[in-house]
């Protein structure tokens, strides 16, 4: 029986990758690139077999793309799954090229229909679920959340087989240092109130500060507010290339909800959108929302919070 492979470069989402691979009804084999501890953790998260490549300290994980591709392509699997991290994606790209496989990002689940792989993927910035069918082998970049590892497997993980990699690329990590703003309160805050272009002038930030203060939160902002307007410090910009935060409450005030902003708040537990445009994408990503003018809604919230 051929295997379904998963590519692991970090602890999450290994259990979800293994479960999604198992849905195809085959042996699940993992290739882990990273430290031994990662391989051991992956072995407990659901795969039947683990091949471990020690990435060492200085090499980028991406340097091992060719040996990972050689290993997996040699097994000629029908499907391969990888996480969506940049490192995993680079490995997945090389695997797809080596196998002459299709490559599909944003995949949430896979199934078999006769001998074809059928995938549901999140498309158009999460606005639709698209069902796709691959005629040949497919490499899927998994975009779902992680799940707890299956309990029956806990304590009896898969065997870990080390592999000495050959054909390692010249990709060297020169240094790793805390990103600017990594210590900004926003990254650790339990409550964040962010403001976007709905704010008319810098002076009006005072009402956002008042709201943040009333809910015991930190101030954040969308990219234009920090970058174009310079109204809020850049280390408080929330988004794909800014801060990725996971507060228990995120209140987006006057923020439209561009995809790159939403990427920064994926870890938030409860999202509240406040916007005068009922069609603003922020509401699609929100648990609660108020459609209205922030200049009326924020003072009303301050009053309601006092009561």
């Amino acid at each position: 029986m051929s295997r379904t492979w998963i590519i692991v470069t970090e602890e999450k989402p290994v259990a979800a990758l293994a479960a999604a691979a198992r849905a195809l009804g085959k042996t699940v084999a993992a290739v882990v690139v990273g430290p031994r501890a990662l391989a051991d953790a992956a072995a407990l998260a659901g795969p039947d077999e683990v091949t471990w490549i020690d990435a060492g300290q200085d090499r980028g994980v991406e340097a091992f793309a060719a040996p990972v591709a050689g290993l997996i392509a040699g097994d000629a699997p029908k499907a391969v799954l990888a996480g969506a991290s940049p490192e995993s994606r680079v490995l997945a790209g090389r695997v797809a090229a080596t196998m002459s496989a299709s490559l599909v990002p944003g995949v949430l689940s896979l199934s078999m229909a006769e001998d074809r792989i059928v995938m549901d993927r999140s498309g158009l910035d999460g606005r639709v679920i698209e069902t796709l069918e691959a005629a040949g082998p497919v490499v899927a970049i998994y975009a779902g959340d992680d799940i707890p590892a299956a309990t029956e497997r806990s304590g009896a993980g898969a065997a870990v087989t080390p592999l000495v990699a050959e054909g390692v690329a010249d990709i060297v990590i020169e240094k790793t240092e805390p990103a600017a703003g990594a210590d900004a309160g926003i990254t650790k805050a339990q409550v964040v109130v962010s403001v976007g272009r709905g704010l008319r002038k810098k002076e009006d930030l005072s009402i956002i500060r008042d709201l943040a203060s009333a809910v015991g939160g930190e101030i954040g902002c969308s990219m234009p507010v920090a970058d174009d307007l310079g109204w809020v410090e850049k280390d408080r910009y929330v988004g794909r290339s800014g801060q990725h935060i996971a507060p228990r409450l995120y209140i987006a005030v006057g923020i439209q909800g561009a995809p790159q902003h939403l990427e920064g708040i994926r870890g938030a537990r409860i999202v509240v959108g406040i916007n005068n445009d009922p069609e603003a994408p922020i509401f699609k990503a929100s648990d609660y929302g108020i459609v209205g003018d922030l200049y009326e809604v924020v003072p009303a919230l301050l009053t309601a919070l006092c009561n």
Partner: peptide, 12 residues
């Protein structure tokens, strides 16, 4: 993000 497989498949 929508086509995040393209750059990496290109490298591959």
């Amino acid at each position: 993000e929508e086509y995040s497989g393209v750059p990496v498949a290109l490298a591959g």
